[in-house]
Design a protein around this nucleic acid. Structure first.
Length: 290
DNA sequence: TTGTGTTTTATTGCCTCC
DNA sequence: GGAGGCAATAAAACACAA
């Protein structure tokens, strides 16, 4: 349809014919004259748009180029439209006053009801379409800004969480090192205990230990090598005494020494009264065996 | 002055609502 | 089906460095 207009328009030299042509096109298209012209512009060449508000400045008239309320097709077809079709205006920016007015209106309400749109258009000397477009673009800008703000908030949260995570990670590593150290320490103690136990069993030899060396303290364990060698010495002494002609005194003395040493090994006390304090049959047997 | 990046104005096509 | 909103996009206007 716009192609038809494009080719027919220059051929229609008479105003009345052009006017009738416009009427027919508008009836056929069933759209507003503004949209018709916009579409015509798009279809007919470069996308340079008509600046409705500046036409007011061009012809010095207060009346807007296309007020939807009061179209005058005869007049329009004769003058402005012809001029517009031949010399389309370039896109112009809104004045700072217009932008301020629109901004204030946008702050009040960012959606545009039809009545408000018409009123704003009248107040600003713009087309309702321009007002609608401005609000549309303004909403898009607002959304972009909002997204940027949201992004900043999220990024800030992310950064603080990352920092917190790294701190926790370091703390975890530290604790892990501590756990390893403690485990090593524990392992060493267990090994020490095991070796002490083993050493005790070995050093005990055929002797029966009724009290059990397991209950011996660390201090006592440290005495084990010395005591063991002493026990060995005593054993050999006893063995030699049994086979030698030692006097009774010497024999008694040795026997006493042997019993003291054996008692210490067994964790028992040798009382000052010269007698051993045992409890239980094992002890008695141990005593009897000597 | 000119090339380039950004902002603003406007269009198009699609979607939803009534 | 028309009106209006929105995302994507075009293109003019503008800003600014080299």
């Amino acid at each position: 349809m716009y192609g038809v207009l494009y080719f027919v328009w220059p051929c229609c030299s008479q105003t009345r014919i052009r006017s009738q042509l416009l009427h027919v096109l508008l009836l056929l298209s069933n759209i507003g004259v503004e949209r018709l012209l916009k579409n015509f512009m798009v279809d007919s060449g470069p996308r340079s748009m008509l600046s409705f508000n500046d036409l007011q400045g061009m012809n010095g008239s207060k009346r807007l180029f296309f007020q939807p309320c009061d179209y005058d097709y005869d007049e329009m077809a004769d003058g402005d439209l012809d001029e517009y079709l031949r010399h389309p205006e370039k896109k112009r920016r809104l004045t700072s006053d217009q932008v301020c007015f629109l901004e204030r209106s946008f702050d009040e309400e960012n959606k545009l009801e039809p009545d408000r749109k018409i009123q704003l258009a009248k107040d600003l000397g713009l087309s309702p379409r321009q007002v609608a477009v401005w609000f549309q673009n303004r909403r898009a800008r607002w959304k972009t800004k909002q997204l940027e703000k949201d992004f900043e908030v999220l990024q800030s949260n992310f950064n603080s969480l990352t920092a917190e995570y790294e701190t926790l990670l370091k703390e975890k590593d530290k604790l892990e090192v501590e756990v390893v150290a403690l485990k090593e320490k524990l392992g060493m103690k267990e090994r020490e205990a095991e070796s002490s136990q083993l050493w005790n069993k070995l050093s005990q030899g055929p002797l029966h230990n009724p009290a059990g060396i397991d209950s011996a303290s660390d201090e006592e364990s440290s005495k084990l090598p010395v005591l063991a060698s002493k026990q060995e010495h005593i054993r050999s002494s006893i063995f030699e005494n049994d086979q030698s002609d030692l006097s009774q005194d010497e024999d008694d003395s040795l026997s006493k020494d042997s019993l003291v040493a054996a008692s210490i090994l067994a964790g028992q006390e040798y009382s000052n009264s010269g007698s051993f304090e045992f409890s239980g049959m094992d002890h008695a047997f141990w005593y009897w065996s000597y």
